[in-house]
Design a protein around this nucleic acid. Structure first.
Lengths: 243, 243
DNA sequence: ACAGGCAAAACTTTATACAATCCGCGCCTG
DNA sequence: CAGGCGCGGATTGTATAAAGTTTTGCCTGT
């Protein structure tokens, strides 16, 4: 949706209207909720009452509803008819699909990123790596998780491919939920080092290396997951509370 | 009347996100407009007034608005603040991105389709081919265009990969607009034969052939396009009306 | 005491009313 | 006569109210 392709017909005094960072109120709500999900502050299954959110952001339910519907379209919020909106709860099957899609798209994205390499972009990427390391050393888990996703988004922006960027934003948000649900507890902090390696490959304009490192990075993230049986979701309550 | 036929396999425990066949009224509006776009009955740039559509479907502006926002998220409708909703007008750059994305995703989709091959699916695909041929021989251009897109959607459904399906639905709708805008006038009817070849390869479980045929099919479609320079859009008026 | 059903409350869904914004047209001015 | 200014009509953005549905708590009957 966030295609900001300039429409030739009315190219007048309006630079861009619905950019992702548009300061209208529905965007503020959407980005607020998205950030909370990306930082693992909202757990899957959490009810998102319209009144509740409207109170927080000082807006009427109309705007909240619009934002929730957009998030539902992105797959990170689940709307049940006459029941309300909830943070989505991806199944293991969903998780496999998401990571397969990422393995398909992201190597292509880094390919384009290599084409677009420039001192300014390298600078931007390295500043981001520094931010990641800083959050890591500070022990700020929330910032770490968010920045880790932001890295991938940044590479997608660098590629200049707005469709891939839109797709990837969706996949990243869902990945965040998946990791929260299915991550093994014993795993170490996930690969800032990988990110640095990818940046190095991009800077050297080494397509093959960049693709390979991105791919192995994604594989490693997925390997840290424990995707239990889909049916377990329904049974879990009986399983946990049973004898 | 839109397709909405029964999916051979999954119809049981999948009340997932936004079911395309949901019979609520906003879906009816969304699918009505989408169908009109896919059949080239609505031209890019057409204004979609809220009252106007509400009148047609007998619904209040609230529901129309919801539908339009969903379509905007899919990239086939463009909403300008305080101005209204219009059918999107993809730029040549957008067109290139769309087809690049399709070249990336669709070969993978046919790969999955080969895995899911079954008599029921082969039957479904061949019935579709028959429908396409029938529309073609009947000279029904609108049905031809719609069915051509439906073929790709059908293969994506067959793959069982819901994320790819969602992405592809977006790409197909945008492709329809792109073809409408940039197709060369001298081109013949686009490849029912290609579709038949793809189905044959799927039936034979020949992954390599299926991928290759899908790829060349997409290349051929894009080759039939004339993607003029973005800047030319502004100049064209002076060019056409000049000496 | 427990099961079943009834009723009220809370919530979402839909519709309508109000406010803000923009475009076009006419008028006025230089 | 050209160009700018302002008002009116129309359309969208936002809020609020009415309607429908699901949940839940209570109450009664056995």
């Amino acid at each position: 949706m966030p295609i900001e392709s300039s429409h030739p017909m009315a190219a007048k005094s309006r630079p861009k209207s619905d950019a992702p960072g548009a300061s209208d109120r529905v965007s503020r709500i959407r980005e607020g909720v998205t950030a909370a999900i990306l930082e693992h502050r909202l757990l899957p299954g959490t009810k998102l009452g319209e009144d509740e959110i409207g109170e927080i952001y000082g807006s009427s339910r109309t705007l909240v509803r619009t934002a929730l519907q957009q998030l539902a379209h992105e797959g990170i919020v689940h709307i049940e008819k006459n029941r309300g909106a909830f943070i989505a709860r991806p199944t293991p099957a969903d998780a496999r699909e998401v990571f397969e899609a990422r393995r398909l798209i992201e190597p292509t994205i880094v390919d384009h990123a290599v084409d677009a390499v420039s001192p300014a972009w390298i600078n931007r990427l390295q500043r981001h790596l520094a931010e990641e390391r800083e959050a890591e050393s500070r022990g700020d888990a929330r910032a770490s998780v968010r920045l880790s996703g932001d890295f991938h988004r940044l590479v997608a922006e660098m590629s200049g491919h707005s469709i891939y960027l839109g797709f990837l934003k969706e996949l990243i948000a869902r990945s965040s939920l998946i990791i929260l649900l299915y991550r093994r507890h014993d795993t170490p902090a996930c690969g800032t080092d990988h990110h640095a390696g990818i940046v190095a490959a991009i800077r050297k304009r080494d397509r093959a290396a960049a693709r390979a490192q991105m791919l192995s990075h994604l594989n490693e993230i997925e390997a840290e997951l424990f995707l239990k049986d889909p049916a377990a979701d329904e049974l879990r309550l009986a399983d946990v509370l049973g004898p």
